[in-house]
């Protein structure tokens, strides 16, 4: 029983590792896109697809094991919804990188730094929410320390995206309004990743309270 549980714990850890990889992969992918290094970009895009497939596979595996072995009956549905939400991060990351590939946005080099900054802030939020989730699984009271950090990075990402959108729409060098909209939609997509992290932190803080016996 304990052996199987250890295996399951390993699976949960693997899943968390994958979610955690989403941030840096997305960041590197966008960097490569801005540099015009398309080989690197496609390589990272493929990696993201693989991460997403792997995350889905592990998540389904954990789900079926939790049901088949009737594990953690009281918190099973909470845990499954948590895994689902974490999986959303990977999905979002994959979709974003693929959207760069499909829509080929012409982001003005003046905004590259801002976009990369925003991606990094979102990646930080992901990093902290994964730490909080790991702590939740390990039953540590430290979970709540990470929530504050998630909220911090999410706010920073909001601020950065707000700043970028304002700047884009006041930029006279971009004449085409559709181009401004395109810029804005990518800012929002990158910011959305941090929003998902924030939603998960909210969920986790409720689960942590429910968990205290």
């Amino acid at each position: 029983m304990l052996k199987k549980t250890k295996q399951l714990e390993r699976k949960v850890n693997n899943f968390m590792d994958i979610v955690n990889e989403t941030g840096p992969t997305l960041l590197l992918g966008i960097k490569a896109y801005f540099k015009g290094d398309m080989d690197k970009f496609y390589e990272l895009s493929d990696k993201m697809v693989k991460l997403e497939n792997r995350a889905d596979e592990i998540k389904r595996n954990i789900e079926s094991e939790l049901y088949e072995r009737t594990l953690i009956p009281e918190s099973r549905s909470d845990v499954l919804s948590l895994l689902e939400a974490l999986d959303d991060i990977v999905d979002r990351g994959k979709e974003t990188i693929q959207e760069f590939d499909m829509e080929i946005p012409q982001i003005s080099p003046r905004y590259h730094e801002g976009f990369l900054n925003l991606t990094e802030l979102s990646a930080n939020a992901i990093d902290q929410v994964v730490k909080a989730a790991r702590n939740f699984f390990n039953n540590s009271v430290e979970s709540r320390h990470y929530f504050a950090k998630v909220y911090y990075w999410e706010k920073e990402a909001d601020r950065e995206s707000g700043r970028l959108i304002k700047k884009i729409f006041r930029d006279e060098r971009i004449e085409d309004l559709s181009c401004k909209f395109h810029h804005r939609s990518f800012v929002e997509r990158l910011d959305r990743v941090a929003d998902i992290a924030e939603d998960i932190a909210d969920k986790l803080s409720i689960l942590s309270i429910k968990r205290s016996i």
Binding site: L2, T5, L8, V12, S75, F136, N138, N139, R211, I213
Partner: peptide, 14 residues
Amino acid sequence: LLRLFPISLLRLDV
């Protein structure tokens, strides 16, 4: 005890 020696969610279940 659980505060002093945190046990993971799955192990606690076992």
